[in-house]
Design a protein around this nucleic acid. Structure first.
Lengths: 186, 204
DNA sequence: AGCTTACTTTGTAAAGC
DNA sequence: GCTTTAAAAAGTAAGCT
């Protein structure tokens, strides 16, 4: 039996940071190759890194949001590239800006099909949201860790809202044991 | 003090007018959908509960009224799909769905997902098929749901496919297009669900 | 009948309307 | 509440050949 924990894969990491310096996004947009900046539509400038792949949202305040990285290491590497690009434009960037992971999206596989109708009733209709007419996944909010899990009929799941990789592991353990207790797995 | 008093009356009148508007909208939409009076009453009760729990603030009256009607239909066991309620409402499907989920959660309505079988009588009478087709469709839904094919699938598409399959089995063939139209799903969805159900019934 | 593209859901920060 | 970004899950839908 494959431990569902071993199937966990980080799909997206969102983090925030700041260079500690105000920016003139108009000029940054002019000098930074590949930058997308449309202040009418959104106040942030979008800059994409290729290796690792990510998208950074750079704001006038100097605060930055990095999304799309596949690991916390990739977040740091992506932001290092962004910092260096800004330095190339003669912009002062703090030594080691603090990088805070805000959300980690993970996928996993329980390895067996799930009867979502039975799970909805078993876990308690008051704790879940399952509206197959609107979305095929069952939404399950956990208190500890504080994450949200989307369970699918295939047994695959998505866990989001966590701030560290262990949150997803703990969530998978709890989900597996609850489903086993209810006799809804295997 | 006089001013406060007038304001209270103004607020009370406005609130009363809003409630009357909401209830008349529920009535209008219920008539357009052809649901029985019991559903309008349940929907009205849910709307008043939403009102007393202050769930309307920040949302459109029409959106809440439509969501309450959608919830009422399901609670009464004669569901209308979001597509169907959207057709008679002045707000979009996305807002109705979102408002419905919010109200259901806040009022602890604990709604079970709609059962595809609940759509069979209405779809079948719209298609003018026999009682035999209706029973066969229900049999197909029961069997394929038992085999776990229902998880994540839309109840209307599941019901539509079963009715299409049943019409073939009973030699009262309805086209995918005809079934798709009454169920408000695409022919592609019927085809996909139909294939799985036929396999589950061991009829392929 | 496919294939492609796109939208539905979840969470999260950023600045501003 | 909205706007934008990213990614997964699976279902549904629409457009094109």
């Amino acid at each position: 039996m494959t431990d569902p924990k071993d199937t966990i894969n980080i799909e997206n990491v969102v983090a925030s940071t700041g260079i500690g310096q105000e920016l003139d996004l108009q000029s940054v947009a002019m000098d930074l190759e590949g930058a997308d900046y449309d202040p009418e539509q959104f106040p942030g400038l979008v800059y994409r890194t290729q290796n690792p792949k990510s998208a950074a949202l750079i704001f006038r305040s100097g605060k930055i949001v990095c999304t799309g990285a596949k690991s916390t290491d990739d977040v740091h590497e992506s932001l290092r590239i962004v910092f260096d690009k800004l330095r190339e434009l003669q912009i002062q960037v703090n030594e080691d800006p603090e990088i805070v992971v805000q959300n980690i999206v993970t996928s996993a596989d329980l390895g067996r099909n799930l009867n979502l109708n039975a799970i909805a009733i078993g876990l308690g209709l008051e704790n879940i949201e399952y509206e197959p007419e609107q979305f095929p996944g069952l939404v399950y909010r956990l208190d500890e860790p504080e994450v949200v899990a989307l369970l699918f009929g295939s047994g695959k799941l998505v866990i989001t809202g966590g701030k560290k990789p262990e949150d997803a592991e703990h969530a998978v353990d709890k989900i597996v044991s609850r489903l086993e207790d209810l006799g809804l797995l295997e | 003090r006089l001013r406060k008093w007038q304001e209270r009356i103004r607020t009370k009148d406005a609130g009363e007018r809003n409630l009357q508007f909401a209830l008349s909208e529920i009535d209008r939409m219920a008539s357009a959908l052809g649901v029985p009076r019991s559903v309008r009453e349940v929907a009205s009760v849910i709307y008043r509960q939403a009102l007393s729990n202050d769930l309307i603030r920040g949302r459109s009256i029409e959106g809440v009224a439509t969501s309450c009607l959608y919830a009422g239909c399901r609670q009464e066991g004669i569901p209308r799909s979001l597509e169907e309620v959207t057709e008679v409402s002045r707000v979009g499907k996305k807002e109705i769905g979102r408002t419905y989920r919010y109200i259901a959660k806040e009022l602890s309505l604990e709604m079970k997902p709609a059962d595809p079988k609940e759509y069979v009588p209405r779809f079948c009478s719209d298609l003018e098929v026999s009682e035999e087709v209706k029973m066969k469709a229900i049999e197909i839904i029961d069997e394929s749901a038992e085999q776990g094919l229902l998880s994540g699938k839309s109840p209307t598409g599941f019901a539509a496919a079963a009715i299409y399959a049943a019409s073939l089995l009973c030699n009262e063939k309805k086209t995918q297009r005809e079934v798709a139209e009454v169920a408000q799903v695409t022919e592609v969805t019927i085809r996909n669900r139909y294939q799985e159900q036929i396999e589950a019934m061991g009829l392929n």
